[in-house]
Amino acid sequence: MADTIQQRIQNQIDANPVMLFMKGDAMFPQCGFSARVVQILNHSGVPFTTANVLEDPELRDGIKSFSNWPTIPQLYVKGEFVGGCDIVTEMFQSGELETLLADKGIATKAA
């Protein structure tokens, strides 16, 4: 049987320690909320992978049901759903995001 979209998403979050489902890509985000999460991840200095839901209608719907979350962007760290733009922003401001990334063993890029 062909991979279902749910299986594809599972594979993506398994294969990529910091996985961002977003509109556009890290270089050219196509939504302010996606752009803000990219900015935060860049600032945190961790390598991350993105998937552009605008290029893939199946993914755009699939990720919403997979995460039980109705909006984009969506951030996963080590296969675990962290949240969307508001939650990532709050966690960044409070320092919790840094702690989470460290606890999950995500190495920051060499300075």
């Binding site: 979350w69 109705p70 962290v82 949240g83 939650i87």
Partner: peptide, 16 residues
Amino acid sequence: RVARSRLVHEVLADEF
């Protein structure tokens, strides 16, 4: 945080 947001999303499901 995630649980709070999910609850609000759920309550507003008709709006989505």
